[in-house]
Amino acid sequence: MSEHLPNQPGQRLARGICRAFASLGWETLLEYVPTRGLRVDVIALGPKGEIAIVECKSGIEDFRADQKWQGYLPWCDRFYWAVDADFPVDVLPDGMGLIIADAYGGEIIREAPEVKLPAARRRAVTLDFARVAARRDRRYRDPDVRHLEG
């Protein structure tokens, strides 16, 4: 069986993050849009309903070009940076979680502080997570269904 690896470094990190979270009992979505103008690399839903967002940075240039990450904080209980082992982690902001990852997995190096979402926001994000996951599953199983969607 051949293994499909994503081409882009950030996509490889995201794959490893999803594997790491799966090993902890969390479910993940890639490129999730919590609100107009924001697209997170990985959002994860934990077994107790907790919500984490992971921003994957493939290099220092990628990190310096990112101006939107603080906009992700109101959409999660925990926020993590995910980088590879060669990334200069001292440039990352303090007070955020840190995961070192590659295409095959990842390890939480620094746990993200928990800032609990308000109940209404949690419900909205959880419901949207479920709807996005179901829509992606349907499109995967029946690519021609798009013409039926409203």
Rank of each mutant, 00 (worst) to 15 (best):
M1K: 11
E3W: 09
Q8I: 00
Q8A: 01
Q8V: 00
G10S: 03
R12V: 04
R12P: 01
L13N: 04
A14W: 08
G16S: 15
A20G: 13
S23H: 10
L24E: 15
G25L: 11
W26E: 11
W26C: 09
T28V: 10
L29F: 09
Y32K: 10
V33F: 13
R36V: 11
R39F: 05
V40H: 06
I43A: 10
I43Y: 10
P47F: 06
G49S: 01
G49D: 03
A52G: 07
A52D: 12
I53S: 05
V54Y: 09
E55T: 03
C56L: 06
S58D: 08
G59K: 04
R64K: 15
R64Y: 15
K68F: 11
Q70F: 08
L73S: 09
C76P: 01
F79N: 05
Y80A: 11
V83D: 05
D84S: 07
F87M: 00
P88V: 03
D90E: 06
D90P: 00
V91A: 01
V91Y: 01
L92T: 00
G95Q: 10
G95P: 02
L98F: 08
A101Y: 12
D102E: 15
I109A: 12
P113E: 12
L117R: 04
A120Y: 07
R121W: 07
L127W: 15
V132H: 01
A133Q: 04
R136N: 05
D137F: 00
R138T: 00
D142E: 15
P143D: 14
